[in-house]
Design a protein around this nucleic acid. Structure first.
Lengths: 203, 203
DNA sequence: TATTGTGAACCTGTTCACAGCA
DNA sequence: TGCTGTGAACAGGTTCACAATA
């Protein structure tokens, strides 16, 4: 978040900023921002603030986005398409090296400049490009199988868009994004908005 | 999460489950699950466990997914396409009532059975369908404008996929999904995996 | 007896408030 | 003087451990 906020400030031509300004741009409070940054080191100047470009580099280095991360995407349905074309990955140091799908009918397709390949090619692709991050965009039923194959072939981080809890061995990280849970949370609050203000008020 | 886990159990024909089983299916610890459920009421039976179907209904009612939520999606690029076609929305009580895009060239398209309409139609659509939830899948630069228009037309909950911090008035909820931040988090852990085990070891 | 529901302990991350420093 | 860096207070959520109970 801070990295993106700093990039935004840099694009606006800002060369220096206070914790207050950066916190506003990132949508957090300034004390939290200072504490967070303090874990990386003392990159600010008291009485002045932070140098945008310097801080940006320090954060990028710390979180590892100065290097290039090869990524495979499995499951080239609607979501897989969107992910393959998502420009935000490329611009943050992620390079999609292969798109895989179990359905042979998709293997003729070319998406985002890459041909969709057979899921059987997973092992060779992971080995060839030294891939450690995999993205699962398959239906829920296939997700655990895909995860197992990914882990077996050497992937150690998985971003899971399928609505299932994956079980993986220790040492493998999984992050889950569930689009409909986000909507459910909003719906929950909506429901409460409708009730709370006039709660118990007789019609 | 619990709702989805319960649906899974119900599909397997399970009619009753302990906190231990449900917690495993949802990927949390059983004490947390019991505490979470206790906030809704006492729907379990000591010595026995929970009735899957009964608990499922109680949770669904509590979070508001027993009702139908009309939703508009703005920005029908790759991600908008994927969201429009995402079956998880429909199955959880969300109904996409309109797809809007500022680019007139897209207005001929039909996506997921809906024609893509002009962004100018936002107000009338929100009014007609009584929409309270909007989804923003536009580029970052357009997101704040879209949010402002949504709020002005009566939307009170926004799911934002654009990589920007939106500012909205009190009473409006915003949730943000940033796909590349998820990958960055994985990359960060990957980087540490590579360093930590043999840290400080001389080559 | 098996399992829930929950007070208390614990832990983690946030905010406050101010000393330290350019 | 203005802003960072940080100890201390605080808040919220998680886990433990056990009394309550079907």
């Amino acid at each position: 978040m801070y990295l993106r906020a700093l990039t935004g400030l840099a694009d606006d031509g800002t060369t220096t900023c206070s914790s207050e300004e950066l916190a506003a741009a990132a949508g957090v409070n300034s004390a939290k921002l200072r504490k967070d940054l303090s874990h990386l080191g003392s990159y600010g100047t008291r009485g002045v603030g932070y140098d945008v470009e310097y801080l940006r580099y320090q954060i990028a280095r710390e979180i590892g986005v100065t290097q290039d991360w090869p990524v495979v995407i499995v499951g080239i349905g609607n979501l897989g398409h969107a992910l393959a074309n998502y420009s935000g990955f490329r611009s943050r140091g992620f390079r999609v090296v292969a798109l895989l799908d179990a359905d042979p009918r998709r293997h003729t397709e070319v998406v985002a400049g890459l041909e969709v390949r057979s899921f059987d090619d997973l092992e060779s692709i992971v080995a060839e490009h030294d891939v450690s991050i995999g993205v699962i965009a398959t239906p829920a039923v296939a997700a655990q199988d895909v995860a197992d194959r990914m882990v077996a072939s050497g992937v150690t981080s998985i971003l899971n868009f399928a609505p299932t809890v994956l079980s993986v061995p220790d040492g493998v990280d999984v992050r889950k994004v569930d689009l409909s849970i986000e909507l459910q949370i909003l719906a929950y609050h909506e429901q409460r908005k409708a009730v709370a203000p006039g709660s118990e008020v007789v019609s």
